[in-house]
Design a protein around this nucleic acid. Structure first.
Lengths: 210, 210
DNA sequence: TTTTATCGACAGACAGTCGGTCTATAAGGA
DNA sequence: TCCTTATAGACCGACTGTCTGTCGATAAAA
């Protein structure tokens, strides 16, 4: 029955994670959460000050995990630069275990707020990590741009909006064109020869499946 | 008392427009809307099937107006290409009268869903318009890219996310750097000489104030 | 007479509050 | 050392007020 506050908090977050993933934030009632955990109303509000507070805690837990994983990959200097870039991008989608299916269900309209908040985390958290790698690449003469951070910001924003969200509806053919164009554009942005990033971008989309 | 359906619909939309702008979608109750219009509950639900339906109609009305204005500017061949690009971009912010303050209040977290829907309209509606102008520019030898559409998509997505939303919090100094980098990146994307788009981008941000 | 617009009472659901309970453990006294 | 009392942290569930959407009745127009 009685548990440590942190344990209870996590139980509540686990339950909310699953329910929000299935039904969305608006589609989940606090009653469903507390019944799933097996606690009373008051207990829920003892640990969290509001329903949105639960969502914020969930995103926090998720983000920390996500960005830590990405950072670890980025900092691993034993791996080639190209491989690290791929690894960081893929880490965003596979989502390291803690919040299992959040990313799969985040795109539904019921989750607009949650989506926006996660988007914010990614847009602010990922470019700095990627920029570190790109700077190394610039030193090695692989890339050439005076604005590596803003390049990465542009790339991350675009990928997240066009390829990961349902903002743009595309046929498979249209998506193939988009990927081709995207590759071409990144090459221009990073100041490398046309075609030299084809394999790396290809890998991102194949392994990530979208 | 009794009015034509379309007139009532518009009254309701006008009231909702104002209230949503002030308090956001979630923060506005249907009661407030119907009291502002001076009708009973049943009447509201006679004209709209749900609260979200009101929002969708509002966005529809807003979008049509917005994209029509942008299209008119884009099609006006008496104006120089550069001027038309600026005009289209500015049309997005100034928002042509119909929905007065929507864009000013859209960024608050309470409006996440509305924001997402408008974002979708812009990302799908604006790039085609801009691409038309860019293609003309390519023919005239002003620009050089095999992927004008995808370039514009990238530019629009980036501007809307980084400069128009509150996704990225920036100091004035940081914003200045972002604009400088943004200009540089567009130049690379459109295959023009460094510095040649400086004045046009500058105008966009000065006239639009953000 | 049929269609169209309006009304307002009502049902059902939901988020968050509040007064109070229970228990482990710490503090203090014998 | 043992017993009693005090405290704080975890928990409970009834209750409040609010909100969205429904429905049958009604009035006006066509």
């Amino acid at each position: 029955m009685r548990k440590e506050a942190e344990e209870r908090r996590n139980e509540i977050l686990d339950a909310a994670d699953e329910l929000f993933s299935q039904r969305g934030f608006d589609g989940t009632s606090t009653k469903e959460i507390l019944e799933k955990v097996g606690i009373a109303r008051g207990t829920l509000y003892y640990h969290f000050k509001s329903k949105e507070d639960i969502m914020d805690a969930l995103i926090e837990r998720y983000s920390v995990n996500l960005l830590e994983t990405a950072q670890e990959i980025a900092a691993n200097k034993t791996i080639a630069i190209n491989e690290r870039i791929i690894g960081v991008v893929l880490a965003l989608k596979i989502s390291g275990g803690s919040s299992k299916e959040i990313m799969e269900h985040i795109h539904k309209p019921q989750n607009a707020l949650m989506h926006q908040k996660i988007q914010k985390v990614i847009i602010n958290g990922v470019p700095p990590i990627l920029t570190g790698i790109i700077r190394e690449g610039i030193e090695q003469g692989l890339f050439n741009t005076p604005f590596p951070y803003e390049c990465m910001e542009m790339v991350v924003v675009y990928m997240n909006t066009v390829f990961d969200d349902d903002m743009v509806e595309m046929t498979n053919e249209e998506q193939a064109t988009r990927i081709q164009a995207f590759t071409f554009n990144i090459e221009r942005l990073l100041g490398v020869e046309s075609g030299s990033l084809m394999s790396i971008v290809k890998q991102m989309f194949e392994n990530g499946k979208g």
